[in-house]
Design a protein around this nucleic acid. Sequence first.
DNA 1: GCGACAG
DNA 2: ATCTTGTCGC
Length: 216
Amino acid sequence: MDWRKCRSFQEAKARELILKEAPSFHPRFFLALDVSYARGYAFTAALLYDALTGKEVEKKDAVSRVNIPYVPTYLSFREIPPILRLLSSWDVSWDCLLCDGQGVMHPRRFGLASHLGWLLKKPSVGIAKSALCGSFSPPGPEKGDHSPVTDKEGSLLGYVWRNRACTKPVFVSPGNLISFEKSLDVVRMVSGRYRVPLPLHRADKMTKESRKGAQV
DNA sequence: GCGACAG
DNA sequence: ATCTTGTCGC
């Protein structure tokens, strides 16, 4: 991997992101994505969630070989190949992507959710379980409590969001084609009762389930 | 130079 | 992320 080229790529493409939704953006169907690893294989899961009924509509998983290592700030280069492989073999449509990782809350404003949203030209939101960059004050203890995450210059990067009372908060940021405010609304729509928003919680379970039943 | 560092 | 036992709380 040529990380210098990856870095230039991130810097260039981050300028093409649109942190604003279309006027007609009223998302109902969300596609949650997650990937887990074992013995050189990536176990990818995608789950289509209907926020109106609160139920999952469809789901699919896939297994791929992985060579690219995890290097902080370059996660998307490792996860996107297996994710695209799954999506290309599946006829599914959705309004917004939910990714297990950062959106623009990234040193070069181009985390996994942004990279995917940019590639697919679709709205996306990044939801990460820990911080990669930025500073913030801890949000209150109740579900829904949140505080802004900013960079050194004071620009907004996203929010630290308490998805469940008295539990470690998650980091929410827009990926592409959605605003900061709307990305928080999206998380409210799919929050559920776990630490991580429901669709992503389920996608994570799928990923581990497919790994358990793998003969590789 | 040192520490931090999504999954 | 993964490895890995018990343990605390609803």
